[in-house]
Simulated scan of single mutants.
Amino acid sequence: MANVKSLTKDTFEETIRQGKVLVDFWATWCGPCRMQTPVVEKLAEEMPDVTFTKVNVDDEAELAQRFGIMSIPTLLIFENGQLQKTMVGYHGEGQLKEALS
C-alpha cells in the first residue's frame, strides 16, 4: 500500500486539491473493501498521474458523514478539489481506469 495514502480529516482537503485524486472509503471488516484494495493498489502503481487514497470510515466517521457514505466501498474521484464521480460497491480494474481517464 506504499502508493496509496491514508487520509484523515486533517489531510483530506489539501490532498483532494492536488489534481486527480481517487478516495476509497473502506473498513477493515468489509469483505468487498478487501477485494477492492488490491485493484486500487495495482492502479496506484500503473497511474502515477493520479493520487490514490483511502479513508477508514471507522476512524474518520466525520468524513464519511460529510460525503453521505452509506455503503462501502465507495470511491470518490476528485479533480482539483471538485467531486467528479461517485462509485459505490466493488469496481474492477477496467471500470476504474475508465472512470479515471
Score class of each variant (00 low, 15 high):
residue 78 F to S: 03
residue 96 L to E: 00
residue 32 P to G: 10
residue 6 S to K: 15
residue 15 T to A: 11
residue 62 E to H: 05
residue 29 W to K: 11
residue 47 M to F: 10
residue 43 L to Y: 00
residue 67 F to C: 07
residue 14 E to P: 09
residue 13 E to S: 15
residue 52 F to V: 00
residue 96 L to R: 01
residue 41 E to H: 08
residue 56 N to R: 01
residue 47 M to W: 04
residue 88 V to Y: 01
residue 44 A to E: 05
residue 62 E to N: 08
residue 38 P to L: 04
residue 100 L to C: 11
residue 86 T to C: 10
residue 6 S to D: 15
residue 61 A to K: 14
residue 51 T to H: 11
residue 17 R to K: 15
residue 94 G to K: 13
residue 100 L to M: 12
residue 71 S to V: 12
residue 13 E to C: 04
residue 68 G to F: 03
residue 37 T to V: 06
residue 54 K to H: 07
residue 52 F to R: 00
residue 83 L to Q: 14
residue 1 M to F: 11
residue 49 D to M: 12
residue 89 G to K: 07
residue 100 L to K: 05
residue 35 M to K: 10
residue 75 L to M: 13
residue 65 Q to E: 14
residue 100 L to V: 00
residue 19 G to M: 08
residue 8 T to A: 12
residue 15 T to W: 02
residue 35 M to R: 08
residue 56 N to G: 07
residue 16 I to T: 07
residue 79 E to I: 10
residue 96 L to W: 01
residue 64 A to S: 13
residue 25 F to C: 05
residue 4 V to E: 03
residue 87 M to Y: 08
residue 97 K to A: 07
residue 55 V to S: 00
residue 97 K to P: 07
residue 18 Q to T: 12
residue 31 G to H: 11
residue 66 R to L: 12
residue 101 S to T: 13
residue 44 A to K: 06
residue 79 E to W: 01
residue 2 A to D: 14
